[in-house]
Computed example of a mutant assay.
Amino acid sequence: MNNVINWFEIYTSDFDRAKKFYTDVFKLELTDLPVSSDRHSQMKYATFPVGVNGIAGALVKMDEVKPGAGGTLVYFDSAEINDELSRVEAAGGRILRPKLNIGDFGFIALVEDSEGNLIGLHSMA
């Protein structure tokens, strides 16, 4: 494992407004990422350029998570998300979003830890 943390997300209530803010402030282009919607929620993603250390991130609009205090989400690298998910509840956490395919960027899942913090899992498989 090269980086323990490999992905971040900044949640939005107005996706287009947030995308314009980050584009304007940091003078960079965000790339819209099509994601499959399911019965759980409608999602929008716009990715930031990948950094030299391989860490990347995105602006996100997702029904399950709202912006605000604590709105930035840290993702932990995983070889296969279901391995970690199988241990979440026994460790005192809760699975908020099961494994979800996000296309060329792999898979994600959302977990509430034992303290109520929201964390993410990311894998390519």
Rank of each mutant, 00 (worst) to 15 (best):
N3F: 02
N3W: 01
N3S: 14
V4G: 03
E9V: 09
Y11L: 07
D14V: 06
F15T: 10
F15R: 10
D16A: 15
R17L: 14
R17A: 15
K20E: 09
K20R: 07
K20Y: 02
F21P: 03
L28K: 10
E29H: 08
T31N: 11
P34F: 09
V35Y: 10
S37P: 02
S37L: 02
D38M: 01
R39D: 14
R39H: 08
Q42E: 14
Q42P: 01
M43K: 09
K44R: 14
K44T: 11
Y45W: 08
A46E: 04
A46T: 12
T47E: 04
T47P: 01
T47G: 04
T47H: 05
F48I: 09
F48Q: 05
F48L: 06
G51W: 04
V52W: 00
N53P: 00
N53V: 00
G54E: 12
I55G: 01
A56Y: 11
G57I: 00
V60A: 14
V60L: 09
K61N: 08
E64V: 09
V65M: 08
K66R: 12
P67S: 04
G68A: 12
G70Y: 09
G70H: 04
G70A: 13
G71N: 10
L73N: 13
L73F: 07
V74S: 13
V74T: 11
V74A: 14
Y75A: 04
F76T: 03
I81G: 03
N82S: 12
N82M: 09
N82T: 13
N82A: 11
D83M: 05
E84S: 12
V88P: 00
E89Y: 05
A90L: 03
A90W: 01
A90P: 01
G93V: 04
I95K: 11
L100E: 08
L100T: 15
L100D: 02
I102E: 11
I102P: 10
F105H: 14
G106Q: 00
A109V: 03
E115I: 03
E115C: 12
L118P: 06
L118W: 09
L121C: 04
M124D: 11
